[in-house]
Design a protein around this nucleic acid. Sequence first.
DNA 1: AAAACGGGGGC
DNA 2: GCCCCAGTTTT
Length: 219
Amino acid sequence: MEFTINNIDTIIIKLRELTENFVIPSVTSMALDKVSPFEILISTLLSLRTKDETTYEVSLKLFEIANTPQKILNITDKELQKIIFKTGFYRNKAKTLKHVSQEIINKYDGNVPDSIEELLTINGIGRKTANLVVIKAYNKPGICVDTHVHRISNRIGFVNTKNADKTEFALRKTLPKKYWCEINDILVKHGQNICRPISPKCNLCNITQYCKHFLIEKN
DNA sequence: AAAACGGGGGC
DNA sequence: GCCCCAGTTTT
């Protein structure tokens, strides 16, 4: 199936409608006068392999105690581990949070960088996190490809790629720029509720007529 | 007891 | 580009 710009517009608009009522409480969806770039970054790092509700709850608890790089460095490893325990992988995450905080102080004077390239120079920050931070914290263009965006972009047929990085680069070519920043929001909601990894609920989906995966399965 | 939650790094 | 990694929560 050929994907024209018209098709992409139609698909995005339909998915936007389909998912607009799904609410995922998260630090990254809060207004920018309520949350800092650093908080967005830390929350994203905590979200690794963790339910959104847990990430949100733990993030708010952490930020009551430490919401700046220096404050993160000021608390002990044990205390930090205890606070973020429920997100899982708490030893690694505590180490990452400390390292990222230290780097932001050392290299960026305590301010979270606003470019993907600079963010990527910090160990522990990869493309998914870097893109999300520039989008959510700085309102700059980016495409945050997490597992949902990767899976669904391939299912629909937006891209045909093996890994998330390639999906990001492919989407940068095929996806109109006006959709870049919201594609993650839309596809995460769609992926959590309908287009799940296993047994997707295609009966609840409104774009099956455009979906390569659905059409292949059906035929 | 098993599955779900997925991004980053090392080589 | 493939493999490895880290723990809690839910079913």
